[in-house]
Amino acid sequence: MSDEILWYANRATGAVCLVLFTVVVLLGIAVRLRARIPGLPRFGTVSLHRTLSLSATVFLVLHIAAAVADDYVNITVVDAFLPFLSDYQPLWLGLGTVSLDLMLAVLITSLLIRGAGNCATSHGQPAASNGPASGEARATRRS
């Protein structure tokens, strides 16, 4: 690929990431507040949030790959993951790196939480089977 195509690809994927992650954050707030988007059921909002999150992550990977591959400036893979070490605009690249690191932390913890929930229910019991909301606890209080 030519340097000009990589330069434009880097800028374009960065702009798309900015828009997509803004929409993802707004949808995440809407999901947390149990708000409904007109024309979508509540599960549609969650599904849209997840789909756009995946799309934004793909564009972010493309953005990082284009930035590392582009020879216009010297950005290394290390610069993409360790903040404020780059020779090229260390503040802005460092803030982007911190954002990437935080996004990876959110992604990993959400996958671990989802996996832990599946583990608790895979043994045939709901996750809160002995809690105060379970039927067993209500039955013992009444008698």
Results as ranks from 00 to 15, higher is better:
Gly39Met: 02
Ala9Trp: 06
Arg34Tyr: 03
Phe84Gly: 03
Ile29His: 14
Trp7Gly: 14
Leu85Arg: 15
Val25Leu: 13
Gly14Ser: 03
Ala105Glu: 08
Val73Thr: 15
Met103Gln: 12
Cys17Gly: 13
Ser129Val: 12
Thr51Asn: 13
Leu33Trp: 14
Pro90Met: 07
Val24Ser: 01
Ala69Thr: 08
Tyr88Thr: 10
Val58Arg: 05
Tyr72Trp: 13
Ala133Ser: 06
Thr97Glu: 01
Pro132Asp: 03
Ala9Ser: 13
Leu54Lys: 13
Val16Tyr: 11
Ser2Gly: 12
Asp87Asn: 11
Val77Lys: 12
Thr57Leu: 10
Leu91Asp: 07
Leu93Thr: 08
Val46Ser: 03
Ala137Thr: 01
Asp101Gln: 10
Val61Thr: 07
Thr109Asp: 09
Tyr8Glu: 02
His123Trp: 01
Leu18Phe: 12
Val19Cys: 08
Cys17Thr: 07
Thr76Asp: 10
Ala65His: 12
Leu60Ile: 15
Ser2Pro: 08
Leu20Gly: 02
Gly14Trp: 04
Val68Leu: 00
Glu136Asn: 04
Leu107Lys: 07
Gly135Ile: 12
Ala133Cys: 03
Asp101Ala: 13
Asp71Trp: 08
Ser129Lys: 05
Ser55Trp: 10
Leu93Ser: 10
Ala66Thr: 11
Ser2Leu: 09
Arg11Ala: 09
Gly131Asp: 02
Val25Asp: 13
Thr22Cys: 14
Gly44Phe: 03
Leu60His: 11
Cys119His: 15
Val58Gly: 03
Ser129Trp: 12
Leu54Pro: 10
His63Asn: 06
Arg141Tyr: 04
Gly14Phe: 02
Asp87Cys: 10
Gly124Phe: 01
Arg50Met: 15
Pro126Ile: 04
